[in-house]
Design a protein around this nucleic acid. Structure first.
Length: 481
RNA sequence: GGUGCGGUGGCGAAGUGGCUAACGCCGCGGUCUGCAAAACCGCUAUUCGCCGGUUCGAGUCCGGCCCGCACCUCCA
């Protein structure tokens, strides 16, 4: 069974057939680095990172390119506000971006090209477009002539005629048509600029992705992804440029993720209803946020709420507890995952889990259904562990562990759910020592059947955010925030 | 106005023609526990926005309607 994905270009699910067998080339539009990212920005990161991981799991080699827009009006404006050099500001937020991405378990792309490093590529493309009369220069600016590209509107399913009618688009500057868009913008005083055949300026909107995608992936690469709001005009314009430039199809499959909403409205800067990822990370571990983002199908809207995150935290904690329990039973043993041996219901469950998981993700990357398969495995495993005490099932347990790690860690990237950041400060060490001391006192109290004392200690610790559990193997505690 | 997306139990969320509508969270009952917690077992939608239609059979296809959202201008 092939991997199937919904292609915005054709509005249907299609089997993924890479242009080059065994190799998938994908490009995802990255952030404009003028501030910290919010949860809405985080969704495509997690979604496409997971998709990339899945493709690798399915045996493809994946070349994954994600750009940084480090030259842009918003960056220039923000830099001016803060009295910083735009390049310095952009670099700062690129660094911040990597911190956020890492917290979410998003792996670095194969290449992270930046606009500022590809001016020559962009200029070369624009020059060619001008030569071929797909674009025209006017007073230091260069515009793309939309009416020269017959396929304009094929991605967003709108016709240039319609856009001209209903739109409030007006002819600005020296554009010949309201639909034309800037490939190169003349520098205004004080703005960063690069030399070009049309005078000092900088790349306009959309040019970067087209030029950099072609540079690293070549024309006709496999998957181009991004948020749904990029369909028009961003991706439409990329197609217009790239295909006019190369004369060949730009990207073969277009994937777009749905929005994060707040009270049903799109999370956005302008509405002021956004939550910075940094803020949410203060309350929930990255893996929980990742789990939460993957618990809705990527094309559907996800209405953000804290209760949902709480639910994700509990669900994911179950996965982790099961894994912890398996580790404990298996001891330090690497535990070869037995593939033979007596037929064991759990072993069948492992096989069924893989099968269901893969079928779900093959079907346009249905993460909620895939996660349901893992929940089934977790439940069956816990059920088995609750009944069995002996250690003669090591091979089977190791097989479960391997499956959980493979699907939950390697593919979904939500494990391990790091308990609490390993406290390394002096204060944290003292706290840990004190808690251990209190629990020793409590154990003594319990031995003397002094339940009042034991419960008081447990309750007071709970009040401090420390959860205490008595298990057959001894008392455990954990931070519960 | 144009183009799309969505409306499934208390909440979240799969399911796009066929056994009793996955799964998670919450809640309730039970097992375990000194009591809890965790874990496990069980229960919780005669019903899938509304109205028609097609079909032996529809949440699932067709038509109409209502509601919400998004894009058409920077936006993941």
């Amino acid at each position: 069974m092939p991997v199937t994905i919904y292609n915005t270009l054709t509005r249907r699910k299609e089997a993924l057939v890479p242009g080059e067998p065994g190799q998938v080339r994908m490009y995802v539009c990255g952030p404009t680095t003028y501030n910290l990212i919010h949860l809405g920005n985080a969704r495509p990161l997690v979604v496409f990172d997971t998709f990339r991981r899945y493709l690798e799991y399915r045996g493809y080699r994946v070349t994954y390119v994600q750009n940084f827009t480090d030259i842009d009006d918003k960056i220039i404006a923000r830099a001016a506000e803060e009295g910083l050099d735009p390049g310095v500001l952009a670099d700062k937020y690129i660094a911040e971006y990597f911190l956020d991405a890492a917290a979410l378990g998003v792996r670095p792309a194969t290449v992270h090209p930046q606009v500022s490093q590809h001016i020559a590529d962009i200029v070369a493309m624009i020059r060619s477009l001008v030569d071929k009369e797909y674009a025209y220069a006017a007073d230091g600016n260069v515009y793309f002539a939309v009416d020269r590209f017959a396929g304009y509107g094929k991605l967003s399913r709108r016709s240039p005629e319609e856009m001209l009618v209903g739109a409030r688009a007006e002819i600005e500057g020296d554009k010949r048509s309201p639909l034309d868009f800037a490939l190169w913008k003349k520098a205004k005083p004080g703005e960063p600029w690069w030399e070009s055949p049309w005078g000092p300026g900088r790349p306009g909107w959309h040019s970067e992705c087209a030029a950099m995608a072609l540079r690293y992936l070549g024309s006709g690469f496999d998957i181009h992804g991004g948020g749904y709001d990029l369909v028009f005009p961003h991706h439409e314009n990329e197609i217009a440029q790239a295909e006019s430039y190369t004369g060949q199809p730009f990207a073969r499959y277009w994937m777009h993720n749905g929005f994060i909403t707040v009270d049903q409205e799109k999370m956005s800067k302008s509405l002021g209803n956004f939550f910075l990822l940094r803020e949410i990370l203060r309350r929930f571990p990255g893996p929980v946020i990742r789990f939460y983002l993957l618990s809705t199908h990527y094309r559907h809207p996800l209405d953000f709420d804290l209760e949902g995150l709480e639910g994700s935290a509990r669900g994911l904690a179950r996965w982790q507890k099961t894994l912890d329990e398996l580790e404990q039973r298996l001891g330090g043993r690497a535990g070869e995952a037995a593939t033979s041996g007596p037929a064991h219901p759990l072993r069948e469950q492992v096989a069924a889990t893989r099968e269901t998981f893969v079928a779900a993700l093959d079907d346009d990357f249905n993460t909620p259904a895939a996660m349901a398969a893992l929940f089934a495995l977790v439940r069956e495993t816990n059920s088995f562990l609750a009944r069995s005490q002996t250690g003669d099932d090591a091979g089977t347990l190791a097989a479960v562990r391997a499956c959980l790690k493979e699907l939950g860690e390697q593919v979904l990237g939500v494990l391990p759910l790091a308990g609490q950041a390993a406290p390394s400060s002096r204060e944290a060490q003292v706290v840990t020592g004190l808690v251990d001391l209190l629990l020793e006192v409590r154990s003594l109290a319990r031995q003397h059947r002094d339940w009042a004392m034991a419960d008081m200690i447990r309750d007071r610790l709970a009040g401090l955010g420390i959860g205490v559990e008595d298990t057959p193997g001894g008392t455990r505690w954990e931070w519960r925030g």
